[in-house]
Design a protein around this nucleic acid. Sequence first.
DNA 1: GAAAAATGAATGAACATTCGTTTAATTCCC
DNA 2: GGGAATTAAACGAATGTTCATTCATTTTTC
Lengths: 236, 236
Amino acid sequence: MDIEFTSQVEDAERVEWRRDQVVRAAVERFAINGYHGTTIKEIAETAGVSPGLIYSYVKDKEELLLLVFMIIFKKYQEEIPKQLEGLHDPLQRFCAAVRAYCESVGSNIGATVVGYQESKSLNAERRKIVKALELETNELIAGPVRECMKAGYFRSVNADLFTFRLVLFAHGWALKHWHFRDIITLEGYIEEGLDQFLHALLTPFGWQHWYSLIGAEEASRQQRAPKRRADPRKRK
Amino acid sequence: MDIEFTSQVEDAERVEWRRDQVVRAAVERFAINGYHGTTIKEIAETAGVSPGLIYSYVKDKEELLLLVFMIIFKKYQEEIPKQLEGLHDPLQRFCAAVRAYCESVGSNIGATVVGYQESKSLNAERRKIVKALELETNELIAGPVRECMKAGYFRSVNADLFTFRLVLFAHGWALKHWHFRDIITLEGYIEEGLDQFLHALLTPFGWQHWYSLIGAEEASRQQRAPKRRADPRKRK
DNA sequence: GAAAAATGAATGAACATTCGTTTAATTCCC
DNA sequence: GGGAATTAAACGAATGTTCATTCATTTTTC
């Protein structure tokens, strides 16, 4: 899904970095005081520009917020497929997708939190855009989940609901970052979560397959999950 | 934790129902357009009173928001202990606590969503109050979780983190209600979630205990129970 | 008929947005 | 190459609107 933004400035390259500069500042402020608690003047100061300049690159304040949403979704859409590249095993794809989603959240904590808290601040049309992007992104996770069920690795549960729980788990890192950053790393958070999700769904057959993956990898690293591209054997 | 609110009106009983009336209207509006997207005038209209009246019962708009938070926490603090009453078995207490938490969310969807989205709209001091209440409430869940670990029913994981996941799961019902109300009931949501959480944590000993509970209860009602136990092999 | 409640028009502060002006960059001409 | 002319960007003070809040007045209660 592509959305168009118009700008008073012609030079495409300039538009891009100015927008980036301004949106970055906006995220920074929004994350602290929320959308409504932040003035354009503050954003301008943070970005080191004048308030007027912002309106050369963005239609209104709300569009700035929409751009924050776009950042997050773009990251998902890029990172998850990239991490799945070359992986054919459903179980590996599942793990990789969840990790990629969480890592994306982890590198955009401010934006994720803003996204959670400010969807009501968008007008109806823009909310619709965001909702569509959200569902589109969910599919990146739901795909591997369904593959795992089809292969018999996961017992059969409501895939939509389960996907939603995975997504919420990922967002959780951002939502409670203030609480957890002191007691656990993102890696730890991911692996503990994955471990629990796997325990929740793996069938005996799934476990068998899982151990074959682990074994194939490296017994030395008898972690809970295979790190990256592990077993190249194709199943199916 | 008790917070006091002062009012220009003396009669305590009247104060209570007026506040209730106004806060109810506030939740209704906040849930649609958010805190900042809602005017006092709208709230007054929804409640069927004048804008001025609101200020006889509430210091300012923000206090109205704080009252919304109080509603949610009060519900948790009342419902969860009530549902745990008389239960001594850790596993039963765990399930009951999770169910009670979810049910509380279910009967206050609007307020829960508002709580999630508007914490940034409170000033620092009020945010602190809310944060404290949140941790206090989490303990109602964390308690049974720790009991289950101590009893050997749950394998040992980070209890704080796990509690947080349970809480997030409960909030999830409110956060994505628009999406899930059509495809699943709250009961279904709770039981599917519980089932997965149990699979994730129960030890072989825990499963044994679980089946003894189920058996002792009524075999007829076994859909709540997982069909198959997970692989008992210890990992890690 | 006093006191308590409730009203809603008036007030004033906050803030998004505009736009006339300034500054910088680029082009053109000799 | 340099200086004038043109165009593009950026600035930031001024504008107008939107509310939260107040309070003089009216209505209700006892």
